[in-house]
Amino acid sequence: MSSARYYFKLAWFRFREPFTDWKSTLVGHILFVFFVWFLSWMWLRFSAKNTQFTFQTILLYVGVTELLFLTFLRARSIQDGTEDFALFLARPRSWILRELFSHVGIAGGARLFYLLILVVITPFFGIPILPSLGFFARTLGLIILLAPAQALISTLFSALLLNFSQTRYFILPISKIFLSLGGVFGPVSDFGEPYRSIFLNLPGSDLFFQAAHIAIFGHPFEQSFAEWFLRILVICLGLYLCALFFYLRGRRRFEAWGG
């Protein structure tokens, strides 16, 4: 019980971090506003004829996917977790649980901050707030629902970093897989074949495209909510097993050099 309290406290502490210095956080989050506008404009410039999305709905779509992606696989928080590994081993706590709950907190706080920014900026793009309340509520629910998946993938990379220092060079390209193939730039449903069919079956699509589709339309694209949720659970299970394996391997082989 006290352990659970410690980890939840840790997650809450990391969750609150962006709000403690909100002015500084706001400056760093301007990029979100820029990308929401920029990518929406770009999408409409090149894909307006082939999409069922209007400027407003594409803006909301990019808002959700960017909200999820900008807090996904952040190299800094992954590396921070491994820097005090030697010290942490001397403490009576589980490193892997610490990582998991930290990433939940970090991503959760940042995502909530982005959501608040989205609420503020949408009226400036002609999207009224009251009719969009359902969208914001669903987005909030998705932030909670997808938190374990995001935390597990980050924890997996932290565990990989313990084993192979070269992992840090692969964080960016792996995140690009999700960016490019997961529909962060634009809806996978509007891609041409065969890419549409291929990407729809990849995990990236479940984590980004389908999530945004649920937020906007209230249901996933061409599948039921239960099917989507099951896929997320399978992803989480796979990530958890891999993270555990690499953590135990790293723990066994860990050598601390120097004084």
């Binding site: 999408w43 220092s165 960016l172 690009k176 960016l179 490019s180 634009g186 041409g192």
Partner: peptide
């Protein structure tokens, strides 16, 4: 480290290029 870094960045760039191409230009 050298090859991990180079290959990682290569893959990163390729995916970024491909992703936008697939989204905006494929089949058009």
């Amino acid at each position: 480290h050298f090859w991990a870094g180079v290959i990682g960045m290569f893959v990163n760039n390729f995916l970024a290029l491909f992703g936008v191409w697939a989204m905006l230009f494929a089949g058009k």
